[in-house]
Each structure stands twice: as C-alpha cells, then as structure tokens.
C-alpha cells in the first residue's frame, strides 16, 4: 500500500516568504516578501539560506518555541546536495533530516514528519523548503546573466521559502492521510517541458490514492497539484480522462496561480514552494475548502543525466488535509 492514514497529526502553523516577482503576482498575502534577490547577502545561495532561516525563526517565535522543543527539522531545496537546507540546519540545534524530491519536496517533508508524529516518535516537527529563481537557473540552466530564449513549455522557478509546524495537538488543519508516489519515466527527455515529465506521475499518484482510500475524486472539495504549469495541467487532465475516466471538476494547479499573465513566466511557476505558497495564501485562508488533496509534483532530473539523453523520471506525492 502506497497510502497511509495518520493518527493525530495536525498542521499547527506555517510561515511563507516570497520574492520580488511573486509579490507583484496574483497572491498578495504572503507573511513576508523580499525586494532584493540578494536579501542583503553576498551571493544568491547565501540569500536562500537566509530565506530559510527567516521562515524557521519566525515560525518558532510566533509559536513561542525554542530549538529544544522541536524533535525534528526536515529541510529540502533544489540545490546540489540539498546544501541550502543543510547550511540552514547548522544554524539551529535541532536534529535534522535533508530530503529531496525536486519540486515535490514539500509533500515528502509532510509525509516524513507526519509518519514520525503518527508513530509517536516525535511531537513537534518543523519542515522547511525553499527555491530561488536565480539559484535554480544556475543549477539547472544557464548563468544568471545569460539571456537564453525560452520555450513556451518552460516553467519559471518561484522564489520563496515556507516553513510548517506539525504537532500531535489538535488544531484546525488535520493531516489525514498520504500517498507516496512512484517514480514514473514516460520517456520525456525535454528538460524544458517539466510539466510533461510530471503529469504521468501525478496521474498515477492520484489514481492510486483514490483506489487505495476507496474514494471518488468528488470526495475532495479541492485537488491541488504542485507545479504542472499551463502545459502539464492540460496533459494531466486529458490523461486522467482518457485512461482512467476521471473528470476533475474542483481542480487547481498551483503553478498557474502565482504569476499574472503579463509577467513573462512562460508556462507558470515551478519549484518546491509553488504548492505551499498557493495552499497557504489562497486555498486555506479562503476557508472555502474542507477536504483538500495536495499533490506535489517533481521532475527528478540532473544536468548530467539530461546530457546523457535519458528519459526524466517524474514523482508526485499526495497528502490529504482536512480543515476543521
């Protein structure tokens, strides 16, 4: 069984930070926004470490918690050796696990944290994830100042950081269950079309979740995918309808909800923060949805493997949230 039900796992609080372009986009209630990609640091990487530190610091302060009260810190990002999260973790005295699922990292962190709490191995778990557009460009594409012409299928890595606090004490957001996705390779080699890489993984995870939990898609008030983008979203919907005869009505893709059409972001936002930014700043605070299924999607590529012309594996992890 890929799906797990959790006992007594609740999302207590979160803190979101967004970058300059996101600030001018469609959402406007981020906890904190920054105007400068350097964020007062010498390099973009150090700026991203600071972004992570700020969201964790704020989360702990708002909840009047100290390092010793947290049983586990889970961190993940897009940069080599998950270095941003590891450097951030060294600023705290909390046991630390680094995880990587590319843009599906947020859900992987929730699943790992919820598993610890559900099995009573931890009481409070903090997870943090971040992405920085210019770091991702450097990591996966070209030098920052290089102006390559981009395809319409390219997604734009969002800049931001999100921290969440999971506890075993009841709050108004319950982490009900989760489905761990399989890595799916459908032979897509185009690193500029990550939506097409991830869509089959999202389909697989959603169908597995619904089957194993014996639910219909209509059970959920909203199904929110991570960062399929404008192209991947259409592929996802058509594949669901064609192969599994599922027509989603209450569905949003987070990648399409961050930037406005006038911002030149091609097929929409991507990155591990895309989903939590939309989840926390649009979905949860609208109070319209009670049962929410979030499916974070990730394209598990590396520059080395992409140059070797292999198909890119995609991943999708689903977490079911109940807003009480």
């Amino acid at each position: 069984m890929a799906s797990k039900k959790f006992n007594n796992v609740y999302l207590k609080d979160y803190f979101t930070l967004a970058g300059p372009l996101e600030k001018d986009g469609l959402l406007n209630n981020y906890d904190l926004t920054i105007d400068d990609y350097y964020y007062g640091e010498k390099t973009f990487e150090q700026a991203e470490v600071k972004m992570q530190q700020v969201v964790v610091d704020n989360l702990l302060n708002y909840n009047k918690l100290t390092d010793s009260k947290i049983d586990l810190l889970i961190g993940g990002d897009l940069i080599n050796q998950t270095s941003i999260s590891s450097y951030n973790a060294s600023r705290f005295k909390i046991p630390y696990l680094g995880v990587y699922s590319a843009c599906a990292t947020f859900c992987e962190e929730l699943i790992v944290g919820a598993t610890f709490i559900s099995s009573k191995l931890a009481k409070k778990v903090v997870s943090v994830t971040s992405s920085h557009n210019l770091n991702a460009e450097r990591q996966f594409r070209y030098p920052v100042e290089y102006g390559a012409a981009k395809k319409h299928t390219t997604t734009f890595t969002a800049t931001g950081a999100v921290s969440t606090l999971l506890t075993n004490e009841a709050t108004n957001i319950k982490v009900e269950s989760a489905t761990i996705g399989e890595s799916v390779d459908m032979g897509i080699k185009d690193v500029n079309n990550m939506g097409a890489v991830m869509a089959p993984a999202a389909v697989k995870t959603l169908v597995t979740h619904l089957n194993e939990m014996k639910r219909n898609a209509s059970y959920y008030d909203l199904i929110l995918t991570g960062d399929l983008g404008k192209v991947g979203k259409e592929i996802f919907l058509e594949m669901l309808a064609q192969v599994h005869d599922i027509n989603l009505k209450k569905y949003i893709d987070a990648g399409c909800e961050i930037y406005s059409n006038s911002q030149e972001t091609y097929a929409g936002a991507s990155g591990p923060v895309a989903l939590p930014l939309v989840l926390f700043n649009k979905i949860i605070n609208s109070k319209k949805y009670k049962k929410i299924l979030i499916i974070a999607t990730g394209s598990l590529q590396s520059v080395t493997m992409a140059n070797q012309k292999l198909g890119i594996p995609g991943i999708a992890h689903a977490v079911s949230l109940e807003v009480l």
Partner: peptide, 22 residues
C-alpha cells in the same frame, strides 16, 4: 498508455513556437 501514445499526447498540448515571427 505507453510511451509512444504519451509522446503524441504531449505533442498535442505543446504550444507551437512561432518560427516565422522568431
């Protein structure tokens, strides 16, 4: 859905670049 069928589905949804304009 096999890989070839999937390739066709992806092709269908890929926005075409305007080569003449470019």
């Amino acid at each position: 859905m096999n890989k070839d069928e999937y390739q066709k589905l992806v092709k269908k949804h890929e926005p075409q670049e305007n080569k003449v304009e470019n």
